[in-house]
């Protein structure tokens, strides 16, 4: 177990750049994620959020820069990192339990059934082990995929717009679930979303990315105590924060690259 020596971030993104041929998806991206915090990444579509997350998961290599986990560079997928995809990404030919055991099968590792049962109980999926994905609702599928990601007890959980396809009510339930799971497991969570509400409810920090090339525009601290009540989330502080983040995102979309670069300079001062 790599212990988190004081002052060292759990995840450190250093000057990360990624190109797809002529397309510069990420450039000079820098970010630190403290252990046991939830950090959300927001930004307009196509600004490189998924690209950044996949690099953090070790699924693809950066063109430049590096990403460190507990001080060591991530060059390939690591068991300490769990990934939750947009859309549940369950294997439709396996039942729910088969999907959750999939990581253990690939690794040739004996599944920790007590932990899995506990997780299933936790997300209210006990009794659905034999059901196939097409027999489960979208929310249930996404809960199953969270169990799958947590089954190997990762210390980092990366989530790529996990609830984007769900309706508003299910989404709020899922947000609470993520908070509860986070309180229980004390993992470090990086959470990509299009929803500023979701980001504010869940995160300790909200990171705004600019598009083309993707880089960090602003990082906002979200100081509200947990568990976060509806009153706090509807209060003035939350409203102001929401407004600033929104202005960041829409400002970029209207005025394009030049203004974004200026704003990014201003953000560095913060």
């Amino acid at each position: 177990m790599a212990t988190n020596t004081s002052g060292q971030a759990k995840l450190a993104i250093r000057n990360a750049g990624k190109r797809y041929g002529a397309v510069v998806a990420l450039e000079g991206c820098a970010l630190e994620v403290e252990a046991n915090t939830i950090v959300s990444i927001v930004g307009p579509s196509g600004c490189g959020k998924t690209t950044l997350l996949w690099s953090m998961s070790g699924l693809h290599a950066l063109s430049e820069g590096e990403i460190l986990l507990d001080g060591t560079p991530i060059v390939k997928p690591r068991p300490e990192i769990g990934l939750v995809f947009q859309e549940a990404n369950l294997l439709p030919w396996r039942n729910l339990l088969g999907n959750i055991l999939f990581p253990f099968e690939v690794k040739g590792q004996k599944p920790d059934r007590a932990w899995i049962d506990h997780l299933l109980e936790r997300v209210n999926l006990k009794g659905f082990e034999k059901a196939f994905p097409n027999e489960l609702s979208g929310g249930m599928q996404q809960r199953a995929s969270i169990v799958r990601a947590l089954s190997l007890r990762p210390s980092v959980l990366l989530m790529d717009e996990p609830f984007g396809a769900l309706d508003a009510f299910t989404r709020e339930e899922m947000n609470q679930l993520v908070e509860e799971i986070w309180l229980e497991t004390q993992t470090t969570i990086v959470f990509i979303t299009h929803s500023i509400e979701e980001a504010l409810f869940l995160s300790d920090k909200v990171v705004v990315l600019t598009p083309r090339p993707g880089r960090v525009l602003n990082v906002y601290d979200v100081p509200f105590a947990r568990p976060r009540t509806m009153e706090v989330m509807a209060g003035k502080d939350a409203f102001d924060l929401h407004h600033r983040i929104k202005a960041d995102i829409y400002g970029q979309q209207r005025s394009g690259g030049g203004a974004a670069a200026e704003a990014s300079g201003a953000a560095a001062a913060e």
Partner: peptide
């Protein structure tokens, strides 16, 4: 691509 990425994220080999 997502299902293959899922398998790769658990370190699956080409054969797996």
């Amino acid at each position: 691509a997502n299902k293959i990425a899922l398998a790769r994220s658990y370190g699956a080999s080409v054969l797996q």
